[in-house]
Design a binder for these strands. Structure first.
Length: 137
DNA sequence: GCCAACGTTGGC
DNA sequence: GCCAACGTTGGC
């Protein structure tokens, strides 16, 4: 069981859109970065991930579950990149903002802060627990 | 294979 | 809207 964080700009794909697909999940496509791709390939069915809104909000708004492991991204004509299927699990009672994460010393080494441009990131079990608590779960 | 130029991302 | 960080491209 591993934990992850995926980022999306709400203007292109938001949490509410993810929730709307809750029953059958939705392909998480469009990753065009090799580090992010590497993380996608490590995801296992049943793993959980934070859903982060970049630019607008800059906060973690909920949790998604990986329901299908990596396969070729249908939106990539070169066939080099992969995607996974995610379904919305549950929303945070209180969104956890980037500011709040930065203020929490125990989370200072999160990839979210260190590699802000990476769109698929690994989260440690300790970071996961802390952020869930901050989110009211 | 190096590196400058350029494009994109995302926080501020 | 600016700019820093980073990835990609293309000339040499």
């Amino acid at each position: 069981m591993a934990y992850w964080l995926v980022k999306s700009e709400p203007s292109s794909w938001s949490w509410s859109q993810q929730v709307a697909k809750a029953a059958k999940g939705e392909a998480w496509t469009g990753v065009r970065n090799h580090t992010a791709k590497l993380n996608l390939t490590k995801m296992k069915k049943g793993d959980q991930a934070f859903f982060y809104h970049s630019n607008e909000g800059k906060e973690i708004v909920g949790i998604v579950e990986i329901i299908r492991e990596h396969y070729p991204d249908p939106s990539d004509p070169s066939g080099k990149f992969v995607c996974v299927d995610l379904k919305a699990d549950k929303p945070f009672k209180t969104p956890v903002t980037l500011v709040a994460i930065k203020e929490e010393k125990a989370l200072a080494d999160m990839e979210l802060i260190k590699f802000s441009r990476l769109s698929v990131q690994h989260v440690t079990a300790d970071q996961w627990k802390r952020i869930c608590k901050m989110g009211g779960l």
